[in-house]
Design a protein around this nucleic acid. Structure first.
Lengths: 390, 390
DNA sequence: ACACATTTGTAAATAGTCCTAACGAATTTG
DNA sequence: CAAATTCGTTAGGACTATTTACAAATGTGT
């Protein structure tokens, strides 16, 4: 395998060492401050599109002098380009418009969450898919699965037509902060250091996160979702991705969002592979739902099954929505199952069981990002980690 | 009323503009970086006790030169004092030990969460209670209640024997980021700008936050709680305080933790003041529990009632614990009700309904901080906001 | 037509931050 | 009693962003 170095010095993490205000955890040097301000400029251009240096200065609170200096640096790195003068009727010297150079880098996004297929794509800096590659999983597990991922990355590296900013991977299971997949039963992984392995192999920045968290991030960046929301990912299993204050929430042991095996209801329920009865997965996972629907004898009966599943999801979500003051719930998964009686039952149940009507609106909707959602979220993670932009 | 200015320039917020790594939101100047490093030094002294400049340098990663400079500033401000030389047998020039000056400031902490009484205290920088004042509420509501709070603060300002770092207030109801009490039914407040009012009146930094959030913060700082936990506060109502990544979580509309009116169970339940049936409060709020127990005819019957309440709490918490990957649940409220069959039922129910056994330990315990918990948490908020220490 | 106001972007000088390098002081070790 | 070690400080340098000033380019108003 080739070893490809990311071409610019910029491909490092900028911005401050993370950590919240209450717990300053490491020193900050002036150069870190500069990295932060640099990201701020980039972020402004990312969100607002074409802007002049003076516009950015007003927006960020930095002086025109400082912005000019930062922009000069970004232009040298190829991340920003001048687009000529603004053409409007204002007194004063006309402004030189700047734009984020969408052709500076490409990003590789990988989705390992499907049951029988690995999906990947080359994306541009705006998160648009440039080209796709899919690899059938063929029941690969353990090291075989890891090799399939590496092969997928390799083919995407070859397909890329610009320098690669980094590789983002959305994996099922529990993924820790270092991109180690602690457990992913379907892929036979336990403590699989996927991020380190790929980073070493390709010499590129790699970020591995949980698939549902990636999806939530994508929904926020591209689907217009609120900065506090939960995304429910229904597939072979059931998982959730949490976005709190605009950032994915991973939890102290990296297992946030693992709600598939929370028991819902007080009336028993079907036996689950985990040994308990009435887990959320026994109501919602697609194999179970498909089977239940297949045995339905009328469309009314089918709807009843879907409504029941939706009610169960609503019952489980109500305490979470209440405790976290969420305004938005997004569903991701097979549209034919989720988008209809099921979704209606979820929102009705949520409204009936929380104070949503007092706290403000509570909305529930299907994702609009389709099957690209995880790949695109993984790309956002790269964008955010490498450029401080999202 | 007197107007008292906080005596030192230090009594401003240091550290970086809050906000997470993913969303740089405002510029950072070198002086902000210095504020951050200053807090880092203070934090080191706060946590580790006596330390030399060289110790702090090693701990923080800053150089001895920089640490000396920051310490000199802190000594001038009176926040740090030299304690003489370290007396141990090591080669080299003996170290000069430094200590956080516990006599630099005092903090005023206020607890408005009790139904019939306002509590307040003067606390030292370590969060220890120096003196207490209590004011009977006598059913005051609205402006009367506000006046009672102001009077309480006034008497504590008079009782303080050192300059006051700030005033922290834990209020029931929904409190926004600016310290406006959006709704607090028991006190008859709607959009009450308590923080601004008190700050103006006393010329001191004031921070108003939700009572349960304050309690959670106290439990973390003084009770040894994990940095991801939920504290359930049972009293006249039921509320929760969330600590995520070591910081209180407020939610997008400041209503995080408001779980009292989440419906629990699928079997109806008692009517609630909110109009729904089976809200968590109908099972757990002390008036209801007391009444139910009073009508019990045997201790077995009483235990059954308590166990039932605990199960309900467990059912409601399971999805939250699962979704947030929490390792710790803390109960605060009347010991005679909570600490026994109720608590046992909660943890049993949680273990039975989550994957806790796979994710690691899940512990549940009573708070050890008694009735000072909210005041002390409010004080931590001040400490954190003014000095970056907690 | 033409002075004037306005806006943009850059240059020079300044204040603040932290670093490296070097040093004196004070103590233990051999 | 010399050497090694550690502490804290001083001096000098690199970097960041600011303030102030200015040239360039445009619209406005008489």
């Amino acid at each position: 395998m080739t070893t490809q170095k990311s071409p610019f010095a910029v491909a490092r993490t900028h911005g401050f060492p993370s950590g919240r205000a209450l717990r300053p955890s490491s020193k900050v040097l002036p150069e870190h401050a500069r990295g932060h301000n640099r990201s701020l400029v980039l972020q402004t251009l990312y969100r607002a599109g074409q802007q002049s240096r003076a516009d950015i200065a007003r927006e960020t609170g930095l002086t025109r002098v400082t912005v000019s200096d930062l922009v000069a640096e970004l232009i040298v790195e190829g991340l920003v380009v001048e687009m000529g003068q603004r053409e409007d009727a204002r007194p004063g010297k006309p402004a030189t418009l700047l734009e984020l150079n969408a052709l500076a880098f490409q990003i590789i996004g990988i989705d390992l969450s499907e049951y029988a297929i690995f999906r990947g794509a080359v994306l541009d800096l705006r998160g648009r898919v440039i080209s796709r590659v899919e690899v059938p999983l063929e029941s690969s597990r353990g090291a075989d699965a890891t090799a399939k991922v590496a092969a997928l990355v390799q083919s995407l590296v070859s397909a890329a037509t610009l320098p690669i900013l980094g590789v983002g991977v959305g994996s099922p299971g529990i993924v820790d902060r270092d991109g180690v997949v602690l457990t992913a039963p379907n892929l036979g992984w336990t403590g699989e250091p996927l991020q380190a392995t790929l980073a070493e192999q390709f010499g590129l920045p790699v970020l591995v996160i949980n698939d549902a968290n990636a999806a939530a991030l994508a929904e926020h960046s591209f689907g217009g979702a609120d900065s506090d929301m939960i995304l429910i990912k229904v597939g072979h299993g059931v998982g959730a991705g949490l976005l709190l204050d605009g950032s994915p929430f991973f939890g102290g042991r990296s297992a946030a969002g693992e709600i598939g095996h929370v028991v819902v209801g007080t009336d028993g329920g079907a036996a689950c592979v985990c040994g308990k009865h009435g887990c959320l997965e026994t109501w919602l996972a697609t194999p179970r739902l498909d089977a239940a629907i297949a045995s339905a004898e009328s469309s009314e009966q089918k709807n009843t099954i879907l409504r029941e599943a939706g009610q169960r999801l609503g019952i489980a979500l109500a305490p979470v929505v209440g405790a976290l003051d969420l305004a938005e719930v997004v569903l991701s998964g097979p549209t034919e199952l989720l988008d209809g009686p099921l979704a209606e039952a979820v929102i009705e149940t949520l409204r009936a069981r929380t104070m949503a009507e007092f706290h403000g609106d509570l909305s529930l909707r299907m994702t609009t990002l389709g099957e690209d959602i995880v790949m695109r979220g993984a790309a956002v993670m790269v964008l955010s980690g490498q450029l401080g932009v999202s």
